[in-house]
C-alpha cells in the first residue's frame, strides 16, 4: 500500500487542462476589452495599455481553434472571420487610423487622398473616415454582444438545469416564466424593455437576456431531461450526490456540445439585435462608431449610387461577423454529427 501511495505521489498532474487554458485565454481577451469599451473613463491613464495582453491571446485562441477544427473547413472559415474581428477589436487603438469621430473631409470617395489624408473607404457626410469607423465599430458590437450573450447563458442554463433536472413544480414554474417571455415577439420585447427601463448598454443586456434566456432554458431543459435518464446520473444519485453537484458536475459537461453550437448561433443573433437597435436609435448612443449607427446615418444620405459605399461597408462588416458565428456553429454541428 505504501509503495502504491509513493507511486501515485510521483504521478504528476499537468498544470492546466486544455479546457482551463481556453477559459483563461478567453478571459484575457474579454476582460480587458470589456473594461476598455464599457469603463473607458475609469481606466484613466492605463487605458491605452490594457488591450496589449489580449493580442497574443486572440492569436493563440485562433491557432488552437483552427488546429482543433481543421477537419471542417466550414468551421475554420467561420473561426477565421470571428477571430479577424476579435483581432481588430483588440488592436484597433494601435493601428495608424484617422480619428473615427473627427469631421475631416465630408463625402470623400473611396481611395481619395485629401489634405494629406488617405480615405481608403471614403468618408461620410460629416467627414469622418469610414474605414476607421468600421474598424472601431466592431468593438462595441463584440463587447456588448458577447457580454449580453454570456449573461443570457448564465441565466438560461441555470433555469434550464433546474427545470430539466429537478422537474415537478420547479419545472412548471420555470417553463411558465419562459413561455410568458417567449410570447413577446423579440423586437417588441426590446422596444418595451428599453422604453420602460431607458436606453443604455446595460439595459440592452437585460433585453437580450429576457429574449434569449428562455430559449436557452428550453434547450438546456430538453437536453437535461434526456441526459437525466442515463445510468451515470442514476449512479451519482445512488451514491447520494446533491442535486447541485449532479446538475453542475455530472450533467452540464455532457450537454456542452450542443450548447456551444447554440452559443455561436446566439452570438450571431445578438449581434443582429444590437446593430438593429442602434439602427433604430434605441440602443447605444452616438457618437462612438457603431455599425448599426453607420447604416442609420448613411441611409438618408446614400441615395446616390456613388455614395452607396457608406451603406455597403458597414453592412458587409456586420454580415461577415455574423457569417463567422454561423459558419462556426455549422462546422461544429457537422463535426459532432460525424462522430
Amino acid at each position: 500500500m505504501n509503495a502504491l501511495i509513493q507511486q501515485t505521489r510521483e504521478h504528476r498532474r499537468s498544470w492546466m487542462t486544455p479546457a482551463q487554458l481556453i477559459g483563461a485565454l478567453l478571459l484575457i481577451v474579454w476582460v480587458p476589452l470589456m473594461a476598455y469599451v464599457m469603463f473607458h473613463q475609469a481606466l484613466g491613464i492605463a487605458a491605452p495599455y490594457v488591450l496589449l495582453p489580449s493580442v497574443p491571446a486572440v492569436l493563440a485562441l485562433y491557432v488552437m481553434a483552427i488546429y482543433h477544427w481543421r477537419e471542417s473547413w466550414v468551421a475554420v472559415l467561420g473561426v477565421t472571420l470571428v477571430c479577424f474581428w476579435l483581432l481588430v477589436a483588440v488592436t484597433v487603438p494601435y493601428l495608424p487610423l484617422l480619428d473615427p469621430n473627427k469631421p475631416l473631409v465630408p463625402l470623400a470617395l473611396p481611395g481619395a487622398l485629401k489634405h494629406g489624408m488617405s480615405f481608403m473607404l471614403g468618408s461620410d457626410m460629416r467627414g469622418r473616415d469610414v474605414l476607421s469607423r468600421t474598424l472601431w465599430g466592431c468593438q462595441r458590437v463584440l463587447v456588448w454582444g458577447i457580454t449580453a450573450t454570456s449573461v443570457a447563458y448564465v441565466v438560461g442554463v441555470g433555469l434550464g438545469l433546474i427545470g430539466g433536472y429537478l422537474s415537478g413544480w420547479w419545472d412548471e414554474a420555470v417553463t411558465f416564466v419562459g413561455n410568458v417571455l417567449l410570447s413577446f415577439p423579440v423586437m417588441v420585447l426590446f422596444i418595451l424593455v428599453l422604453n420602460v427601463l431607458g436606453q443604455s448598454g446595460f439595459n440592452i443586456i437585460i433585453a437580450v437576456t429576457f429574449s434569449s434566456a428562455p430559449i436557452i432554458m428550453r434547450i438546456v431543459r430538453g437536453l437535461a431531461m434526456q441526459e437525466k435518464s442515463r445510468d451515470y446520473i442514476q449512479a451519482a444519485q445512488t451514491r447520494g450526490e446533491s442535486a447541485l453537484w449532479i446538475m453542475v458536475m455530472e450533467l452540464l459537461p455532457n450537454i456542452r456540445g450542443p450548447l456551444i453550437v447554440d452559443a455561436c448561433l446566439r452570438l450571431g443573433y445578438t449581434t443582429v439585435a444590437i446593430t438593429t437597435l442602434t439602427f433604430l436609435g434605441l440602443g447605444l448612443q452616438p457618437p462612438d462608431p457603431d455599425w448599426g449607427l453607420m447604416i442609420k446615418e448613411a441611409a438618408p444620405v446614400a441615395l446616390l449610387w456613388k455614395y452607396s459605399y457608406m451603406l455597403l461597408v458597414p453592412s458587409l462588416a456586420v454580415t461577415s461577423l455574423i457569417l463567422g458565428f454561423n459558419l462556426t456553429a455549422d462546422g461544429l454541428r457537422e463535426m459532432s454529427q460525424r462522430d
Binding site: R230, D231, Y232, Q234, A235, T238, E250, P253, N254
Partner: peptide, 19 residues
C-alpha cells in the same frame, strides 16, 4: 448508501463521458 450499490445495464451510459 455505502452498503447498497448498483451496477447498471448499459455500458455506454454507466460512466460519465466527461470525466
Amino acid at each position: 448508501i455505502r452498503s447498497l450499490q448498483m451496477i447498471f445495464q448499459n455500458p455506454f451510459d454507466t460512466l460519465n463521458p466527461s470525466h
